[in-house]
Design a protein around this nucleic acid. Structure first.
Ligand SMILES: [Zn+2]
Ligand SMILES: [Zn+2]
Ligand SMILES: [Zn+2]
Ligand SMILES: [Zn+2]
Lengths: 121, 121
DNA sequence: ATGGAAATGAAAATCATTTTCATTTGTGAT
DNA sequence: ATCACAAATGAAAATGATTTTCATTTCCAT
């Protein structure tokens, strides 16, 4: 495993909102930072592993990353503009637990996301 | 624009649940159907345009398609052996709808999956 | 039959992401 | 300071899904 290059995280912060690996890379280049695309990818992956950033998918399939608080939560994402709202998953947490118990599953986790078109789109 | 090749739709039906373009293509080949990958892609796109099929993204970014009319359900997947149980998402359907309304989102969909270790694993 | 439009698919192009691997850098012991 | 070894780096190649190109075939209306 490799540790995240701190300049990648700093750039993602500065980008505000979501940015893809390619975008972070281009941004760093434009700002005169010397870094390889591979390192950007590795750093973002590492940040995802450490749950410091979230990863989602654009409609075109490109992965986009964003800083994320560590509290467990879910997302409501606009298919049009990518705007995202962090939401509570109370009902889901219960649902996942109940279902898992019913079928005897252990070490249970879950993913859940809502997507649609926001008011502006 | 091209119209969808009916054999693609028929294959997607037979696949049950979600299938990627590549999977539909492989399935048709295995069944001895003569078709080009390009046509599979074009047909699926056309079906999406006509809102006959839904498209989502797997975690790895691959696009997966399914008939819109399919009975909507969710999955409980074993991380160990891959065994999958189809489950009802009652609580989630309500949660998604409520959250979307609260934030004024339209044309809303959602994904939700539970994963863990089954009894055998 | 004839001409043009639509459909088809093989091959090439695209593009994000991953893998490989040689080089550089950092660290700790001597 | 020197040596040894692990971690980090990045250029280049590989991968894999998807799209584009374009020549050919199939349909259909006249
Ligand atoms: Zn929007
Ligand atoms: Zn949750
Ligand atoms: Zn299992
Ligand atoms: Zn559901």
């Amino acid at each position: 495993m490799s540790r995240s290059n701190p300049r990648v995280l700093s750039t993602l912060e500065r980008a505000g909102g979501f940015a893809s690996a390619q975008e972070v890379y281009r941004l760093m280049q434009r700002e005169g930072e010397s870094i390889g695309l591979t390192t950007v990818y590795r750093s973002l992956q590492s940040l995802v592993n450490d749950k410091i950033v979230d990863v989602l998918r654009r409609d075109d399939g490109e992965a986009i990353y964003r800083l994320c608080g560590d509290a467990h939560h879910h997302h409501l994402v606009c298919k049009g503009c990518g705007d995202t709202v962090e939401i509570e998953g109370g009902a889901i947490e219960k649902w996942a637990k109940t279902m898992a118990e019913e079928f005897g599953f252990r070490e249970v986790g879950h993913t859940a996301e809502i997507f649609g078109l926001c008011q502006k789109c």
